[in-house]
């Protein structure tokens, strides 16, 4: 890996100041970024270490909203989010224990890996992504694979999830990487049903709107029997074809409905 200057700011305002430098990038848990640096797929001049900042740690729950500070690790989310069990379960199944002790929710969402779990939860549960500059609805946040609306130097500080009536995340593990080969996060708010899909599309996380409509009027697995996901635009790799991924979306959505 190329060398860089590693800065360890003492507080959030110092971190944001450091991030305004040319070639600066935030280092949260580093569980994606460090392997990326080793492969020389990124070469920042300055890395600003934010994982340990106290202002970016912690979970709070009130009035149907779970607020998670961006530097909170998956392990902490898994163990401390009580009012949104589907979200805690998702966090408990990311990577492996050592990865969950370092990886953070803010890092996962900012990176927007097309196979990551958190983007699906964020999109399905009407989340708001709060940054150093603004609040962004999750529906506007994800642009494409590894791409979000975040500006240079803009830092996610917190993610607010609206707790649904019921929710379930179905992850079909890619067993080598522990990423989702396909993952479906289903959340129901009355008749408003959200189905967010990760791991499948070449455009990254997306909502399966036909299934949402069908499930909104009939919340049963058979409600989506007649629907098919178009395999066009799905990811194809050695782990699964486009058709296989398209098929998995429907299978996992049905499993999620049954599990609710």
């Amino acid at each position: 890996m190329y060398d860089f200057e590693l800065r360890r700011p003492e507080n959030l305002s110092e971190a944001i100041e450091s991030l305004s430098a040319d070639g600066a990038q935030a280092l949260a848990g580093g569980q994606t970024l460090i392997p990326t640096l080793k492969n020389r797929l990124a070469s920042p001049d300055v890395l600003v270490s934010i994982g340990g900042l106290a202002e970016l740690q912690g979970v709070s729950e009130s009035n149907g909203v779970v607020s998670i500070k961006a530097g909170t690790t998956h392990g902490v989310v898994a163990g401390s989010v009580k009012s949104y069990p589907a979200l805690a379960a998702l966090a408990a199944n990311i990577g492996d224990p050592a990865v969950r002790n370092r990886g953070t929710i803010g890092g996962s969402i900012a990176n927007n890996d097309p196979s990551a779990c958190y983007p699906a939860a964020t999109l399905a549960s009407k989340a708001t992504i709060i940054t150093s500059k603004r609040s962004i609805p999750s529906s506007d946040f994800f642009v494409g694979i590894f791409e979000t609306v975040l500006d240079e130097g803009e830092l996610i500080t917190q993610v607010d999830f609206e707790v649904p009536d019921v929710a379930n995340y179905q992850k079909f593990d890619q067993p080598a990487s522990r990423f989702a080969l396909v993952g479906v996060f289903l959340a129901r708010y009355g008749n408003d049903v959200r189905v967010a899909v990760t791991g499948a599309s070449e455009d990254g996380v997306f909502r399966w709107s036909e299934a949402e409509q069908a499930l909104g009027s009939d919340f049963s697995a058979s409600a989506i029997d007649r629907l098919e996901v178009d395999a066009e635009g799905m990811i194809e790799d050695i782990h699964g074809s486009k058709d296989y991924r398209a098929s998995l979306i429907k299978v996992l959505t049905k499993r999620a409905v049954k599990a609710c």
């Binding site: 360890r8 580093g30 460090i34 080793k38 002790n101």
Partner: peptide, 26 residues
Amino acid sequence: DTSQCGACVVHVDGKAVKSCTIFALE
């Protein structure tokens, strides 16, 4: 050295971490 095998696991403040995927300065 790609964060997958776990041979480098150590404890940092009591938590298991992959020592090949954390900088010494952190």
